[in-house]
Design a protein around this nucleic acid. Structure first.
Lengths: 195, 195
DNA sequence: GACATTTGAGTACGTTCGTACATATACTTG
DNA sequence: CAAGTATATGTACGAACGTACTCAAATGTC
């Protein structure tokens, strides 16, 4: 008993798999979503990614570096999606509709985005290193919104998205989607959206 | 060397110090604010509280119970403060002013409230047990706001407070306080507040 | 004052963690 | 094909962790 590893200890040696690093990052986000940053360890991530433990310290300079890389990836992916979504809007009205969809989707809990972003916020509140990620994320959101709204409205709308999303997620009673429309209507000064 | 404890191993025995439990809870919040839930351990909290390690398992049924008690305490304290603040407002205008002060103070980073609430949100996003705390917290905020605003406006305002606070905290560039006034003005439909 | 009970403290155990490091393999170069 | 290098891996180590458990001291009871 106690066969710790495949019978033949096959060390692959120089294989330079460029996807290896990305696989670890993806696995890291999965583990964080499941267990939180608190419960994330090199061993869990390695297991999730299907790579040996030694690969963790090989590709990343410790836990901090791993987390930073993982959250940077997340921020780039999510803000990219939002940019693309906003870019498809043709006017204020359809832009409002996109924002509505975004809040609805983000607060639905159907994916891990909400959990992961909270984990990131928690790190960023304490650590300046991570704040550069959130800062850049917000900057890109704002710019995407400024395709359709003036700068101040874009900032307020961005903040409102955040607040409504969180409140919807952290309340145990379900919230009426109509509330989202009211929020957007008041911030943008577009009363017709609140129908 | 290696004197682990006061020279005289004075076991105090039945002393029933009712403050002991509260001291541990306060210490726990301090440790969380410093090191995050991630970095919080029984040993650190015990050291901060000046109680022996054994006291931790005596007063609390494990880490989960400790965290739950600590965050419940936090929620009660903070929402109590907000209720009292809102109760002193005499009309819509002064209520808006109170809300303004609240956002300014919460996002200033002068105390640990912001850090702690994020840590709580992160737990609540994943764990229903903690969501009852956030849920109750939001309920009380909403009721406090409903002293001066209609229910829908109260909800939106509450969400806006959250969003603006977070954005102010997680941006590396400073934000103009005037932005807060604009947000309140638009949500409450009180244009005169945005001056 | 003797005994029982409650309250609290100290310690030891088994687990898990991050990381360092020796070393095996694959590739490159001559 | 030999020598060298870059790449990747398995493992071992010390530190820190949560928790269970034993037992001392103070209090309650008669």
């Amino acid at each position: 008993m106690s066969s710790q590893h495949p019978p033949t200890g096959s060390r692959l040696g120089r294989r330079n798999d460029p996807e290896r690093r990305d696989k670890i990052i993806d696995a890291c986000l999965i583990v964080i979503a499941q267990s939180g940053v608190t419960g994330t360890s090199h061993r869990k991530v390695a297991a999730q990614a299907g790579v040996p433990l030694g690969a963790m310290t090989y590709y990343f300079d410790g836990m901090q570096d791993l987390l930073h890389s993982a959250f940077t990836n997340l921020a780039i992916r999510v803000s990219g999606e939002f940019e693309r979504s906003m870019a498809t809007a043709t006017d204020k009205q359809s832009a409002c509709e996109k924002v509505f969809e975004r809040i609805l989707q983000a607060s639905s809990g159907d994916d891990d985005e909400l959990i992961l972003s909270h984990e990131l916020y928690t790190l960023a509140t304490r650590d300046t290193t991570f704040r550069s990620i959130t800062s850049e994320w917000m900057r890109r959101s704002r710019i995407a919104l400024e395709l359709h709204f003036d700068p101040l409205t874009a900032r307020l709308l961005d903040a409102m998205i955040e607040g409504v999303t969180i409140h919807r997620a952290l309340d145990s009673e379900p919230r009426d989607p109509q509330e989202i429309r009211a929020a957007i209507a008041r911030i943008t000064g577009n009363p017709s959206f609140d129908s």
